[in-house]
Design a protein around this nucleic acid. Structure first.
Lengths: 230, 230
DNA sequence: CGTGCAGTTGACGACACTCAACCCTGGTGG
DNA sequence: CCACCAGGGTTGAGTGTCGTCAACTGCACG
């Protein structure tokens, strides 16, 4: 674990996990925690390692990845600002990370010790309830994709991008998370080539634009139409 | 809501949700609840309906279903004994069931009022923690399937059946939940015909047997081999 | 005795996978 | 300064698996 900083509460209480909590409650929730800056692509937690920490995303995004039996990676979920990652492993018997967690773009994390989870988070029904909601949302997004299983790939890619756009929204229709075609493919469980064939066409049509790993959606209505027409 | 019975605590405290709880805690958790017998195929909660109740499965199984845009159903999850269903909707702003819940085989439920959830469950960190674990397990099973996305269908069916066998295990290798090929297809997001083509072959090879909607796995090692070889 | 559902089989076609080659960029080292 | 390499993106040809459509059986149920 590298450079850490003193925790500044001001920015933290705005995170949805800690909303509706008093300052003292927030302090207990992050007792002994540290702030950490993560570079693009840096691995935060490695699958199989002993799980001593979990984290809350202060800014940026993380991908939760599992290797498939075939060798290729599968992106289980892309966590964004305010999400809590690896919390439930803290309470599990087998205290190894079940997934690899990796940064997408520069990311700032609140790294919290297992002990804090056991001593405070499990005892706080407020926090537990927040965790439940986050988990529920995560499950819902996975389900949405399952619903589109039989739909053509273009529909699935479109739905994926729009859902990611919703969750990372900045001004305009620009996805603030750096995203390669490989990652889109890994998230949907398909091959890069298939993704590229479809997104290249969108590019030529002027529906999307990529610069410096960042994807901008120029014709949102066209992508939405792809989903609806189905 | 139809015929209900007086609640018998003896059978209930053995359910994993209520383990590690005192009798009085369990009583509060199911205050005002009723026991209900559900017939095979009966709909417990209908998607879009007002969510006044959630439930704990005392015995049997429920399928959690969402209609896809194409019109066909997608089975999100098959909940078995001890699972809690529709609990998280109780706390959501939009109090409509997000899925349809339907019985698979004769099932006995503990039907609990929303008020009990709000008044007791949300306040109890023990129960919240149990809910977290159940949700986590549910998410893990969904993920497992995602890992096998690119694998041949036979592998995915095999993995699905084995996972269901693990969770419903009775003596022998018989899945105690009645299961049609359509349901297998809906759970994996594929067509019935594809499922049938594969399972018919297994039938002829003597690897599985179906009688009265119940599936028995005769050559478990053969099915496991399908997963491993991949 | 008709209706509906579960299971089955076959023919056909489409969409996505596989494999292979190639471009372009940025970074690194001689 | 150039050569080399790696990673991301792209394109094409060929293949295969699974979806679609259609027809048919057997069975349960009212």
């Amino acid at each position: 674990m590298a450079i850490t900083q003193k925790i500044d509460l001001s920015g933290i209480s705005t995170l949805s996990v800690f909303s509706e909590m008093t300052t003292s409650e927030v302090e207990q929730a992050i007792a002994g925690a540290s702030l950490k800056d993560i570079k693009h692509r840096e691995v935060v937690f490695q699958i199989g390692d002993d799980a001593h920490y979990f984290c809350v995303i202060k800014s940026g995004a993380l991908k939760i990845v599992r290797p498939s039996p075939r060798g290729d990676d599968v992106i289980v979920f892309i966590a964004t600002t305010g999400d809590v990652v690896a919390a439930l492993v803290m309470g599990a018997e087998l205290r190894k990370y079940p997934t690899t967690i990796q940064a997408m773009g520069p990311t700032q994390l609140i790294l919290i010790q297992r002990a804090t989870f056991v001593n405070y988070w499990t005892k706080s029904s407020k926090l537990q309830s927040k965790l439940n909601n986050l988990l529920y949302k995560r499950m819902t997004t996975i389900q949405e994709d399952k619903l589109l299983f039989k739909a053509p790939l273009s529909t699935r890619i479109s739905a994926f991008l729009i859902q990611l756009l919703d969750r990372t929204a900045i001004e305009g229709h620009k996805i603030s998370v750096p995203l390669t075609r490989q990652e889109v493919a890994d998230a949907l469980g398909v091959t890069v080539e298939s993704v590229i064939r479809i997104m290249s066409e969108w590019n030529q049509n002027g529906w999307i634009r990529t610069n410096d790993k960042h994807l901008e959606i120029l014709k949102l209505d066209q992508l939405v139409a792809l989903i609806d027409q189905n």
